[in-house]
């Protein structure tokens, strides 16, 4: 199979930063014996193995499921979040995408709200706090009516699922020239606003999530759609329009 197509040598330039407060810099590495069948992260594994053998600190990067669903991994690859393939997380990017001798530049997500912890690992807890500000339907365990008691039009359920597919990887904010979290925030808001269960808290949710998004220090949306282009789940920027609408309605309703 493909592994017989021979191995490649890849030149890497990777951001290394020992800790949140330490200064960082780009460092060059050579990845040897890279098989085209390897995933991008497996290629980094190989580099790290050689670093460990030399007694050096391996490159830290977040990863977990390696099948594109947990949202842990994410890095700028040659200036694009998650690399060159659309609808793909880094873990699903394969080295057959590259040629022998290629140079690849790897940087962490950059945003005020995503401070670097180490190397390519950033702190994305800002996203959790945005969800905590209202990205749910308040229903205590045990208080739910029968699941079929409230019909949901199929089209709405499907659209809600489109938005709910977000894996919270942070690529949208990382790619956005303004480091805006609009796509992330709006996807959850849209999912819940499409469902009858989500109506009760609709305006409160819109207000609180938008305020939290600002509070975290994300930038504003310039409606360029770079977020959608790098989203591994291809979540539409139309969600952002919905968020804007939800927020406007909420702002007009606000009595206090």
């Amino acid at each position: 199979m493909a592994e017989n197509q021979g191995s490649m040598t890849i030149n890497l330039k990777v951001w290394r930063q020992a800790g949140p407060k330490q200064p960082g810099q780009m460092k060059s590495y050579v990845a040897e014996d890279v098989s085209p069948d390897m995933s991008f992260l497996e290629m980094l594994d190989v580099v790290n193995e050689s670093l460990i053998k030399r007694g050096e600190d391996p490159i830290a990067f977040d990863h977990d499921c390696r099948e594109g669903i947990c949202g842990s991994c994410g890095m700028m690859i040659n200036g694009i979040a998650h690399g060159p393939d659309p609808g793909t997380t880094v873990c699903q990017l394969h080295m057959r995408r590259y040629k022998d001798g290629d140079t690849i530049i790897i940087e962490p997500w950059r945003a005020r709200a995503f401070p670097v912890i180490k190397d390519l690992v950033v702190d994305r807890s800002a996203f959790d706090r945005i969800i905590a500000a209202g990205g749910y339907i308040s229903v205590n365990t045990g208080s739910a009516p029968d699941a079929n008691a409230i019909p949901v039009p199929r089209d709405n359920a499907e659209r809600a699922m489109d938005s709910a597919a977000c894996i919270s990887c942070g690529a949208c904010a990382a790619q956005c020239k303004n480091a805006s979290a609009a796509l992330f925030t709006s996807a959850k808001m849209n999912q819940l606003s499409l469902l009858p269960q989500g109506q009760a808290e609709r305006s409160d949710r819109a207000r609180r999530m938008v305020l939290q998004m600002d509070h975290e220090g994300f930038g504003n949306c310039s409606n360029e759609g770079e977020c959608e282009a790098v989203c591994p789940k291809e979540i539409s920027m139309s969600n952002i329009a919905v968020m804007n609408r939800e927020y406007e309605k909420a702002a007009l309703q606000k009595k206090s």
């Binding site: 200036g79 940087e107 005020r112 282009a229």
Partner: peptide, 26 residues
């Protein structure tokens, strides 16, 4: 100004995502 402030440390290399997907209107 806020947008600039939202990313105090920039990228060394940055490419338009439009090169990856036409979903971007950049």
């Amino acid at each position: 100004l806020e947008n600039r402030n939202a990313r105090p440390v920039g990228y060394q290399t940055k490419v338009w995502a439009r090169t990856k997907s036409q979903k971007s209107v950049k």
